[in-house]
Design a protein around this nucleic acid. Structure first.
Ligand SMILES: [Mn+2]
Ligand SMILES: [Mn+2]
Ligand SMILES: [Zn+2]
Ligand SMILES: [Zn+2]
Lengths: 131, 131
DNA sequence: TTTCAATTTAGAATAAGTATAAATCTATTT
DNA sequence: AAATAGATTTATACTTATTCTAAATTGAAA
């Protein structure tokens, strides 16, 4: 079944994620909904995020922080997190297919996908650190 | 200060992690301690795991599940998780340096390290699936 | 309209982990 | 040996993120 039922609340949640520049958490989404004059139940926001994730309209990101983040970009890409300020950037450079092939060979697993979280220091934090 | 103070409880926690074959969670560690006749406070197990991690005697793994796992292998490697049975395998094939360099160039971040979680289906689950 | 399934709501429940303050252990000084 | 002081452990309370539950609401179809 690929029919998608976008209720008012699901559409509003989707809009927030789609218009975000920063991979918001569920709590971020909640706050932005309130800013836009909505007041949905907490559970509804979680349900909507899950629904949209299931329908592959958004992606859920586990970046090793306590809370999941959400991303309206569903094309294949990875993420990089600043160890200083926590900013999350996009990594579009594709993972070499050959690495995945080697991993499949090494482990005997049938490999489906890789989630990569790169850690480092962003340009701003680096220049602040300099002085 | 690199002095390491291994109390009874820290040593016992370390032993459990070192002798485990399966990247145990804190709860797993707790259970195995009880099996070995120990009965430490829950907080002590968490404190010990954190202490050992800080001293780099073990590593904490965030594999996108709800609970962290712990690994006595501290050499550079990655992990692969079976989507069916949840088994966690080691990935020793190193990520090409050149990929990390490209990511640094693309993002402007100073890249420190990459945490990779590969998802797929392990050999056993694949053969079970066949019939 | 009536009906029925899907959805939303408010709030309780759960899971993992952290914080706190008192008790205990351990090493050092007297 | 006794006293002191710092580190550690313990029991328990707390926090945070998320899921569950049961009742109320919505909205499409009959
Ligand atoms: Mn992204
Ligand atoms: Mn490992
Ligand atoms: Zn930064
Ligand atoms: Zn498996």
């Amino acid at each position: 079944m690929k029919t998608i039922n976008l209720t008012t609340q699901r559409q509003a949640v989707y809009d927030v994620v789609r218009e975000a520049e920063d991979h918001p958490t569920a709590a971020d989404v909640m706050n932005r909904l309130v800013e836009r004059g909505h007041s949905f139940a907490y559970g509804t926001v979680y349900n909507s995020l899950r629904y949209l994730t299931d329908k592959e309209m958004i992606r859920e990101l586990k970046l090793g922080e306590t809370a999941s983040r959400y991303d309206a970009r569903t094309d294949d890409h990875q993420h990089i997190v600043c160890e200083v300020c926590g900013k999350v950037g996009e990594v579009m450079t594709p993972m070499p297919e050959e690495w995945l092939a080697k991993v499949a060979e090494e482990t005997g697993y049938e490999v489906h996908e890789a989630h990569i979280v790169v850690e480092g220091v962003c340009a701003e934090c680096r220049s602040k650190r300099k002085r």
